[in-house]
Design a protein around this nucleic acid. Sequence first.
RNA 1: GCGUCUGUCGUCAAGCGGUUAAGACCUCGGAUUGUGGUUCCGAUAUGCAUGGGUUCGAAUCCCAUCAGACGCCCCA
Length: 417
Amino acid sequence: MTKIIHVVKGTKDILPQEVEKWQNLEQNALEIFTKYGYKEIRTPIFEVTELFARGVGDTTDIVNKEMYTFEKSDRSLTLRPENTAGVVRSFIENGMSRLSAPVKLWYKGPMFRYERPQAGRQRQFHQVGVELFGIKQPAADAEVILLAVNYLKSLGLNDLEVEINSLGCPSCREEYKKKIKEVLKPEFDNLCEDCQNRYEKNPLRLLDCKVESCKAIFEKPEIKKVIQSDFICDECAQHFNDVKKYLDKMNIKYVVNKLLVRGLDYYNRTVFEIKSNNLGSQNAVCGGGRYDSLVRNLGGEDTPAVGWAMGMERLNSLIPDPEEKKLDAYIVSNSSTDAFELAEELRAEGFNVEFDLSNKKFTKQLEKASKVAKYALILGEDEIVKGQVSVKNLETSVQETIDRKNLRSKLENDKNS
RNA sequence: GCGUCUGUCGUCAAGCGGUUAAGACCUCGGAUUGUGGUUCCGAUAUGCAUGGGUUCGAAUCCCAUCAGACGCCCCA
């Protein structure tokens, strides 16, 4: 036997029986996002590597160790690890800052990150996300969060936890980082290896370390005081308060998590995550925030923006499997030409119909019908001659022979009852 | 990149150094050439992820590789 070829590590087929769930996710996205005025955008799956280096940030793990990068004619290209950078690139390139604000976009599609696969994590995975450009006011943050919550609700997911935080603006955040580094300096040698790395790279990430010895250090009164201090400046605080006010008004429950820091460099002010307790350790279904300097950093005009992305695999694992859909009818006949004809007729009228293509025996055909369809349409010699068809309800076993011209209304009646 | 566990039919599995490698489901065929979902018969792994080794003898023990699951880091 010739060796078979396997899917590559961290990728998966979406098989026919799972496709309906995916179509649901996509359909709901289109419906809900359209209500809020978002338009779909589709950007390429690969981009110039520099886009992600500059966009996502070259200190992030995503850019440093997780990108699928390849060279082609002297150019370095990368499979997109996320889609905000690509959308921003397109926003700038297509002059969308000239459009009247806000510009509201949504997307869906595969993303690629070279990571160790585990529950809720693959190397090729899918995200659906939204981006709102051109509004600096807190109402934009609130709308985007509301949109996320309503999308999740439309999928039947109600008991998820919304966590929010404010990272402040670049200037007040720098102050805060400095203070944290200062107060932790004497403890540096006692921190775990990861934390020692983070100390320089991203001091904010120190705070939610899970190592017990580190936690103990953060509990020390003089350190805890600094960590918990309200470091953000008055303007940022005002913005954050307003976002919370909107959420309260819209009846969205949330908790403020001061340890919530996102892993992409471009965020400022509002950041948020939506988590589930039913997901294993990778428990965030949605993550996002405000990124007011990204458009400018990528060469566009100064444009404030907010957005989020959801992991579609994670969403799907929270949604129960739908019942398998049966065909409306399966034609049982020894005359495949007549079966063909009838099938086409019914299909044209909107029914889902199949029949046997391999000349199986009558009983086998009926057996097949009972497995895949609600009705068996028996088309034998008698029926063909008389222009009739025997309709058998495969659940109730009730069968009656009717004129072919009445078949449509018969099937429709039963369909609705 | 690190750690823990796991690889026996399409699927779920038994087997723990000597078996003809159980069983169940699915699939296919027959009982049953116009009536299924119940029942009964039958078919389907010269092979146990791959490659080495130990042994008279390996699916079973050892090593390596590959793959998967889960966790760390990080993220959706």
